[in-house]
């Protein structure tokens, strides 16, 4: 990771001011994404992974707001841009894919119209040229007979086909980064693999970096170059995907890996992590994972660990590694 990062998130903090105090949904999250790299972000619901994605594309739902830290794209800060300037970046430089393809497309317009509209918004070309580009894109994402399909409406496409259209829409203007928020969660298992393979192939061909938000470790293992594990709004562990899967360091990641069924391992039962992730209103002092952690010691209950290096490019936020070496 010597080259300049495409995306740099530094100390990001997302807050939701509410009647009963302010909720911190994302707390001191930092990571880089290199050009063309796929970063998987994994965690349970409410861990702050989708919120991080929304913050990057500048579409946090009010009253949520970025309360600290910075987000930079190609060295330029984008977290404090006025709405109109950020709008020009969205779609053109950062594409987005959302979870549910059934509801991501406007039901009243043909997919062609939605593609053409997106293309002409970001580049100065004629309707005709935009339509040709839309046809090419549909072809590229594997929609059969695009000439016929382009004028059809979203309800005439199946879920998997719609997600292909959504991917085409995200790739419209050749963005450098795509934030994909649970792109396969709403799909049939058999379709999931196809969509992931498609996303992976297209991004490799276009040199597009991806921030892949999911709770599916399998998808991450298959797709990502690096993975960030989030827990209660913070990154618990981040590193190359092989390292993290083979040799997880943070006790939470260890538990997470233990809960995945593996081929060829005749486990009687899967290990599970006792307890559940704390609600945002009840995050404990010290390490947020300490009530569930089997290795917990005194320091974990009072002091919050920062990320520390555990291997090359591999960091974990755990006091076990405070002296530089693990003593697990």
């Amino acid at each position: 990771m010597q080259n300049e990062p495409l995306l740099r998130v530094d100390g990001l903090r997302v807050e939701f001011p509410g009647r009963r105090g302010t909720l911190v949904a994302v707390d001191d999250v930092s990571f880089d994404i290199a050009p063309g790299e796929v970063l998987g972000v994994v965690g349970e619901s409410g861990a702050g992974k989708s919120m991080t994605g929304s913050a990057i594309i500048g579409l946090l739902e009010p009253p949520g707001r970025i309360a600290g830290g910075s987000i930079s794209l190609d060295g330029r800060r984008i977290d404090n841009l006025p709405y109109e300037e950020m709008r020009r970046i969205r779609g053109k430089h950062i594409g987005a894919i959302f979870q549910d393809p059934l509801t991501s497309l406007n039901p009243l317009y043909s997919v062609g119209r939605q593609l053409v509209e997106t293309i002409t918004t970001h580049s100065d070309i004629s309707e005709k040229a935009a339509r040709d580009r839309a046809l090419a894109l549909l072809q590229e994402v594997g929609i059969p007979a695009p000439e016929r399909r382009i004028d059809q409406y979203p309800h005439q496409f199946s879920g998997g086909m719609r997600q292909r259209v959504v991917i085409a829409l995200a790739l419209c203007a050749n963005p450098r980064l795509i934030v994909a928020d649970e792109p396969t969660t709403a799909l049939d298992v058999s379709i999931q693999a196809q969509i992931i393979a498609l996303l992976k192939r297209l991004c490799r061909e276009h040199g597009t970096a991806v921030m892949l938000v999911t709770h599916d470790m399998g998808v991450i293992a298959e797709t990502a170059d690096r993975v960030a594990v989030m827990y209660a709004g913070r990154i618990a562990e981040i590193g190359p995907v092989r390292d993290v899967i083979k040799n997880p360091r943070h006790p939470y990641t260890v538990g997470l890996m233990g809960s995945i069924p593996r081929m060829g391992h005749d486990a009687e039962r899967l290990t599970q992590i006792d307890g559940s992730m704390p609600r945002l209103t009840e995050i404990p002092a010290g390490c947020a994972f300490n009530p569930r952690c089997p290795y917990v010691f005194d320091r974990c209950r009072v002091e919050r660990p920062d990320r520390m290096a555990v291997a090359p490019f591999h960091e974990a936020a755990c006091w076990k590694y405070a002296d530089g070496v693990g003593h697990a």
């Binding site: 579409l59 709008r87 053109k92 987005a96 918004t121």
Partner: peptide, 26 residues
């Protein structure tokens, strides 16, 4: 509040297109 409006914003469409083209028609 719908997803397709959020997605329309994520595609970088102008407010005008989002509000009048997509939202109002629905």
């Amino acid at each position: 509040r719908t997803d397709y409006i959020k997605f329309a914003r994520a595609r970088g469409l102008t407010n005008r297109a989002v509000h009048f083209g997509h939202a109002l028609r629905n």
